[in-house]
Amino acid sequence: MARPTLSSDRHRLHRIVFRLTDGEHRDLARRAKQLDRRANELARMLLLSALETPGQETSYYDPAVVSELNAIGNNLNQITKGMHITGRLSPTVTALCQRIEDLIDEAIGKENE
C-alpha cells in the first residue's frame, strides 16, 4: 500500500542544515531516543515549538530603560551639535556619560538574571 500524498501546505520543500558539536549531537540523540523519535524529528519539533511560543524571548528589554536611553541619545545629539557650532564642550557631558554607563550596567545586570 502506498503512502498517502501530503497536502501542499504539509509538504516539506525547504532544507535547513546546521552543525552540532559531539556533545550537542549526543544530547539530541539521547533525548530523541527517550522520546522514541529520530534526532531530526526532535530538532524540527523543538524549533517549531520555540517559534510558536510567544513571549519567551532570550533578552530583557525594560521599556522604561529603553525610553530613558532614547532621551539620553537625543540629549547627546543636541550636545554634539552645539559642540560643533561653538567649538566648546558642555560640562553636562560628563554627567550624561556617567548616566549612560549606569543604564548600560543596569541593563546588563537584568539580562544576566
Rank of each mutant, 00 (worst) to 15 (best):
Q34S: 15
N77H: 06
R19I: 04
E101L: 01
T21M: 03
L48T: 09
H14K: 12
T21K: 06
E24S: 10
E24H: 10
N70Q: 04
A29H: 12
A95C: 00
R30Q: 15
I108V: 04
R12W: 10
L20I: 04
A95N: 03
E52D: 14
R3C: 03
I104V: 14
H14V: 15
Q56T: 12
K110W: 06
H11T: 14
G23M: 09
L13Q: 10
Y61V: 15
V66S: 03
D62H: 04
P63G: 08
D27K: 13
V17G: 14
R37D: 02
T58Y: 10
C97R: 00
I85K: 07
L6V: 07
M1S: 12
E111R: 11
R37L: 14
L103Y: 01
S67G: 11
V65M: 06
R19M: 06
V17C: 13
E111T: 05
H84C: 05
R15E: 13
D62W: 02
L51C: 04
N77T: 05
T5F: 08
V65S: 07
T86A: 06
R10D: 11
S90V: 05
E106G: 01
L42I: 05
R3E: 10
R26M: 02
E113F: 10
L35E: 08
N40L: 06
E41W: 10
A2Y: 05
L48C: 13
L6R: 12
S7F: 00
L46K: 06
S67Y: 03
H25T: 04
T86Y: 05
L13F: 09
V65P: 01
P54E: 07
N75P: 01
R44K: 07
